[in-house]
Amino acid sequence: MSEQIDFDEIFARYRSDPYEYVDVRAAHTGRVALRVQEGDVVAAPSGEWDQIPGTRLFEITRERNTKPVSAKTNGTVSFLAGELEGQFVEAGTRLLTIRHPLKKKEIIEGILKEVLDLFPAPERAKYFFALDIQSRIEKKGARSIVIRPGDEIIIMSLMKRDTPVYYSGKPGVIYSVYFEPGVSVAQGAPLIGVCSEEKLPLIQKIITKVKADWDKFGSSESD
């Protein structure tokens, strides 16, 4: 975490534009058939297990194999590459952008993600804390657990293969936990957010300020 972060600038940014812009790109090469229009409201996956797909965004066909792609987040289509309708596109081509309205909790998490050291998931898998860390968390809470590079902190579970994940960031306490036992985490998504012990008060100050500013701001979004 850097002392150089301009918190006022971050707050101002969220205040003026409390949205996250999620680009949706072609996962692989293929011919694209768009299924939404600019301005359309799209829904995220739903159901107890998120088993109901979000709004169908487009289909991409390669070698007669059509793959539907659905929204992973709710929001409004703020950009659509309409000129690519029916065209053959390369993997990674930006096809649309979803403007996702942020809730207070998401804004706090967003700001924290800018100031914490994030430790990403090495693979798409399910994760749980190593037994030693878990028992210490249960006794004292995550925010009292100091971790250092090389510590075995998390177990990655994939196809009945359990692999220890060794922490490789800066020393600090586990401030935020972004995974739940039994729920898959995408590769590269943060597992935990870590900050040094001496900076814990600063983090708390950020959260207090966001909550206060949010109330002053008077947004209709709730947490």
Binding site: G47, W49, K126, L158, G182
Partner: peptide, 20 residues
Amino acid sequence: DGALVMRLDDGHCLTEYSGE
């Protein structure tokens, strides 16, 4: 890749990469 695809009673499918 070995992941299991399962259809729930509501007709929707889930893919699981771990678990039992």
